[in-house]
Design a protein around this nucleic acid. Structure first.
Lengths: 226, 226
DNA sequence: TTGCCGAATGTCAGTGACTGTCATAATCTC
DNA sequence: GAGATTATGACAGTCACTGACATTCGGCAA
């Protein structure tokens, strides 16, 4: 039955995966979902991997085939968002200068992710909950910071390529990527304690990042006036 | 015999601690020392806490009374160095502007720490080894990044106080502290792969940090020229 | 010196994250 | 539908870390 086979592998949009792949995607999503529910109800530390696995009815061993460790399942949606940002950056027109491209990319990323779904794991309220979970859980914060610095390395590579520079020689890509990462991070931090910014949805976050960016010049300036 | 008591508690320089305190300090130092030796010979992951404890002839339980976790013993000397930097910053004259004070503080910190001992846990070669250990060990890198961001919060507080600002309102202290942290971090990273910089000792590190700082302006500038 | 108090340490048992291994069961391919 | 792949489960084991309790050691006063 070649017809069925073709249907399974090359159907609508050439994107329909086989049953195996779909099933895997489903369990993975379920695990992320169950984990978030448990974390937010009992806290991260008081939730065991066994519980998460049991909630999805798979063995603990299977959990660890999907995620390297307990932190990864908590940070999965954040990781996806960061990958999305990277994709945006790769697609920015070459005319933009590095800083413009980066600012445009986060804006773009927050707009599309925020607009995707009003509820569920991609929603703004879910993001807020996740940020708070991360900030209040030392081990999660540590894992998250490691992830983001890894992304900074990738970003620096993209910037260097855009400008046709050798990242080993020229320090600017690394420096800019690191500064950008720092600004985004403290913006996230401010966002968690800024009720007005949540209300505004993704635009609130974007505005906050812009405000922090605008303080870069003044902060680096010689002396501060009150 | 009050004489002996006084001698034990208020002898030369009024700094001699009791036997109990001295013993604690000694075991702690020994643990850090043994840990570093084991980590550098067998690697971090392949060294168990039991081994470290056994090398100093204490129980595993005692190890965990000195250090919250395995990462902490590896990062202990780095943590001390950071605390020293904080102290330097606190002591900087009020006339200096924030950026000047920070740059002066790392320079000061590296000079005195580097000049302290030519060999041993405080030496430049030991620092290099430690940096490499951290960068090649994901869990150590994560813990280290968490520590440094915590220090950034402290630094931001000091800066705000120096300038008489409310850190909740004014974004500049946080932004500057974060940018500073980012610059220092990538400088450390460059240092590990820059043989010439090791030779120069602390001054090599200081020069690297200065170079990265000098790229801040250009990196943030509109467009980059090759 | 003696004896008491509190702090430091050791012992032991337990939990939970994570890994290797092998058997089994589910998909995929032909 | 047979056979090759691949996902999963079951099980045992290691290791980081913790609570509880007994013991020992240093600090101090009678």
């Amino acid at each position: 039955m070649p017809a069925q086979l073709t249907e399974a592998t090359t159907a609508p949009g050439c994107r329909v995966l086989g049953l195996r792949e779909r099933k895997k995607q489903r369990t993975r999503d379920s695990l992320v979902d169950a984990a978030h529910r448990l974390f937010s109800s009992q806290g991260y530390a008081r939730t065991t991997v066994d519980e998460i696995a049991a909630a999805v009815d798979v063995s603990q061993r299977t959990f660890f085939r999907y995620f390297e460790n307990k932190e990864e399942v908590a940070l999965a949606v954040m990781a996806d968002a960061e990958d999305f940002f990277i994709d945006c950056l790769r697609r920015r027109p070459a005319e933009e200068n590095p800083l413009q491209a980066m600012r445009a990319s986060i804006t773009e990323a927050w707009r599309s992710l925020g607009g995707m779904e009003q509820v569920g794991p991609g929603s703004v309220t879910a993001a807020l909950e996740l940020f708070e979970l991360i900030e209040t859980t030392p081990t999660l914060l540590a894992a998250h910071l490691r992830r983001t610095t890894e992304q900074e390395r990738v970003v620096a590579g993209i910037l260097a390529e855009r400008e046709g520079l050798d990242p080993a020689t020229d320090l600017r890509p690394r420096v800019l990527a690191a500064v950008f990462g720092a600004v985004v991070r403290i913006s996230h931090l401010s966002w968690t304690s800024d009720a007005a910014a949540h209300e505004a949805g993704p635009d609130g976050m974007i505005a906050l990042i812009e405000r922090h960016f605008d303080q870069l010049g003044p902060a680096l300036a010689g002396s501060w006036q009150r």
